[in-house]
Design a protein around this nucleic acid. Structure first.
Lengths: 162, 162
DNA sequence: GCGAATATACTCGGATAAAGGATGTCCGAGTGTGATCGG
DNA sequence: CCGATCACACTCGGACATCCTTTATCCGAGTATATTCGC
């Protein structure tokens, strides 16, 4: 059980977009070059962010992706959900109900949710709450100036080279 | 990204052991029969709990597993860690450092931890904290009496049948 | 009858396959740009 | 010289392989029990 690489990639791309402050779209291939990532797979990740409404994409020359809304309104939770999907971390299979079919079933007992599932859900909610409390804008602001300068320089270099 | 089934199995088994209150070891095969699970794979899961020191196992006839210590001192976090392993949910690959090698490296900048990794870690800690705050004993006590009775009846039936 | 040796059946434990999801790759559809051609 | 047309290069988007983790299975090592044999 590990969060997929795509989450890290997506978050870094969002931050980069904020730091660049570009009004023009940024091609996914150029973002991939910034981090030396597989361009095609990063494209796949950004597709998910686009489908989730976090990014807007433009085709053709001078196309690419840009943030769909104010970074202060994009939470880490949004990015994680967009990349990983909406499924909960813990999926209760209700195995507690197994093995009682021949015994005459106790439906009343199982109307109440499984205590284990409830506790796991509570923990998961704490996780989601933390992620939802931190926005992309927060992360972007907390970075040292050095980082922002480096990213911009790097972007300019890649733009001119290509 | 989903928690493995083994976590649910392990937790249910721990609760069952508490409810049964047996002083004799309970064979993993019988626990599997209680939930209609794959006996061999459940065995594998219980092995991990044993290796983690949560269960003690006994071989031979009248062998099986039992809780290694007071259920009030076994947290959900212990079980999750035992089954899933100690690795963190989010593994930072430090991709921020990529793409700058030819540019003369800025080692000073990267001595500070990655902001994204820090935020992800914070969320993960909230999750772990919740899991660590709830013990197996808590879960066992919160269950309705009906459940405990059913589990004991079921266990007795399986014991006599086999 | 009593004790020890022994065969036995039962348990855990780790090494070995199959399935599902994440990761990585490829090619096609669509679009804005720039060049070209005609007036 | 100006405008419209057209070909092009560039981008995203989804369909197709590959790898790794999880799930599932099998067989061997070890042990307490029950039996059996001898005294």
């Amino acid at each position: 059980m590990r969060t997929s690489e795509g989450v890290e990639w997506g978050l870094h791309c969002c931050l980069t977009l904020v730091w660049l402050g570009e009004t023009d779209p940024v091609p996914s291939a150029r973002l991939a070059a910034m981090f030396e990532l597989s361009p095609t797979y990063l494209n796949k990740v950004l597709q998910r962010l686009t489908r989730a409404g976090l990014l807007t994409s433009a085709s053709g020359p001078r196309g690419g992706v840009r943030l769909a809304r104010d970074p202060a309104r994009i939470t880490m939770m949004d990015v994680v959900t967009a990349v990983e999907g909406p499924d909960p971390l813990f999926a209760c299979a209700e195995i507690r109900q197994q093995g009682v079919s021949g015994e005459g079933a106790h439906p009343r007992e199982f109307t109440r949710p499984c205590g284990i599932a409830a506790a796991m859900r509570r923990a998961e909610l704490a996780w989601r709450r933390e992620l939802a409390a931190r926005t992309v804008a927060d992360l972007a602001q907390d970075a040292p100036t050095t980082t922002i300068t480096r990213v911009r320089t790097n972007y300019a270099r890649l733009t001119s080279t290509t």
